[in-house]
């Protein structure tokens, strides 16, 4: 236990707040929190849905929870069920074998709901395109509010996409 505590103390707080190199992240994080509070007055809950991705996007979505981006500290967390979610974060082209599951996840998410298409495949179908096995872009299966390009998008780009989805939804109020 001593070694564990020592490592925690030695590591310190790595969440990026001030360093100049990551200034954009710090600003994004603050704006993001304000938008969440203004829109919801509580935590934003995300349900991630892989509709057919290569798993590259999932790796970068995982990174959102590492100490540098520390998304959860902003009150944004990932839920296990779409029934607990405000926003669906969808990756991949929509594989035809996933079509029913994606539609059910969308229907199970309570309104008002947001959909963030994450990554080139979710935005356009990407390199896999449309075929006998793929519907291509997510918007061909469920409505999409914001699309974040990138193969895969960086964690920072995904954070910005979440911000865009929330502020965009505010304007419609």
């Amino acid at each position: 236990m001593y070694q564990l505590l020592k490592q925690i103390v030695r590591t310190g707080i790595r969440t990026e707040a001030a360093p100049a190199a990551d200034e954009t992240l710090r600003v994004t994080a603050q704006r993001l929190q304000q938008a969440v509070l203004a829109r919801l007055g509580r935590a934003l809950v995300i349900r991630q849905v892989d509709a057919g991705s290569c798993n590259g996007c999932e790796l970068e979505i995982h990174a959102l929870n590492n100490p540098y981006y520390n998304l959860e500290a902003l009150g944004i967390k990932f839920a296990a069920s779409p029934r607990h979610a405000d926003l669906l974060l969808v990756t991949g082209p929509v594989a035809k074998n996933m079509e029913i599951a994606v539609k059910r996840a969308y229907d199970a998410t309570p309104a008002p709901k947001l959909v963030l298409a994450t990554g080139d495949c979710a935005c356009t179908g990407g390199i896999f395109g449309e075929s006998y096995a793929s519907h291509g872009r997510v918007s061909s299966v469920i409505p999409v509010d914001v699309a974040v390009p990138g193969c895969p998008p960086t964690p920072l780009a995904i954070m910005q996409g979440i911000l865009t989805a929330i502020t965009g939804a505010r304007k419609e109020d």
């Binding site: 057919g52 896999f128 075929s131």
Partner: peptide, 25 residues
């Protein structure tokens, strides 16, 4: 099989020198 997206069929529409991008995904 849920994320079957027809990769092998997709390869057949690519030139040999571009297949590495699809293979990398």
């Amino acid at each position: 099989g849920f994320v079957h997206k027809g990769i092998e069929k997709r390869f057949e529409s690519l030139p040999l020198h571009e297949g590495h991008r699809l293979a990398g995904r």
